[in-house]
Design a protein around this nucleic acid. Structure first.
Lengths: 103, 103
DNA sequence: TTGTTATGATACCTTTTGGTATCACGTCAA
DNA sequence: TTGACGTGATACCAAAAGGTATCATAACAA
């Protein structure tokens, strides 16, 4: 669902969390340490990110490791591609071409 | 402000309005005709889109024409470019290269 | 001038959102 | 086994979001 992805990206804290998770997988506690909000608040953000398919969670003992899921960004990229011709024709055309070539 | 752009894109109605405005400039009344919500509701959406710098408004007599502003999407593209290496290295590199060439 | 039309602005309501405090539960180590 | 630790879940709160109804204002036309 495209809406769940955009919703997940609408909050600045969640966007920051997402960028953090690109450096390494983290537990909730580790993520919480980086922000001035409580762990339950971070948990809520992670839940919304998971609903938007932007992170994946795997259990390891009593820890739960959260990792960035690049695939989840696809709906946003797709939606944005609608506007390709507006910001630059050449770039848009090339992007389409390369994306086709990849498959 | 990046946040104002993401906030503007978070609502599905606003995203639809934006796509509509790529076909032609429209007044509030014209936009309202396309949705099942009242004109004041549409006005609110247009205000938020304007705050996100995604549309521009010009007065023409007693009408106010709303037009899509492609430049406003830049903060989102910039933020997304952070993840370029994740979804495809070749595409990301090429994009950066072309963007530089354009300037 | 007067009525219609296009729009802006305000007040108000309900739901969602972002946050805290708190408790319950499973897991690891001594 | 017992205590500490990491996490999930729930209840609750204030603010923001999305919506409607309604009124005010400016411009066009007869």
């Amino acid at each position: 669902m495209t809406q769940l992805t955009f919703r997940a990206l609408a909050d600045p804290t969640r966007r920051d969390i997402l960028q953090m998770l690109t450096t390494r997988d983290m537990t909730i506690a580790e993520v919480s340490d980086q922000f001035d909000i409580t762990r339950p608040a971070v948990k809520k953000h992670l839940t919304i990110l998971a609903e938007g398919n932007l992170i994946q969670v795997r259990t390891q003992g009593r820890e739960r490791l959260n990792s960035f899921n690049p695939t989840g960004m696809a709906p946003v990229l797709d939606w944005l591609s609608f506007f390709d011709s507006f910001w630059d024709d050449r770039l848009g055309a090339l992007k389409t071409l390369i994306e086709k070539e990849i498959q």
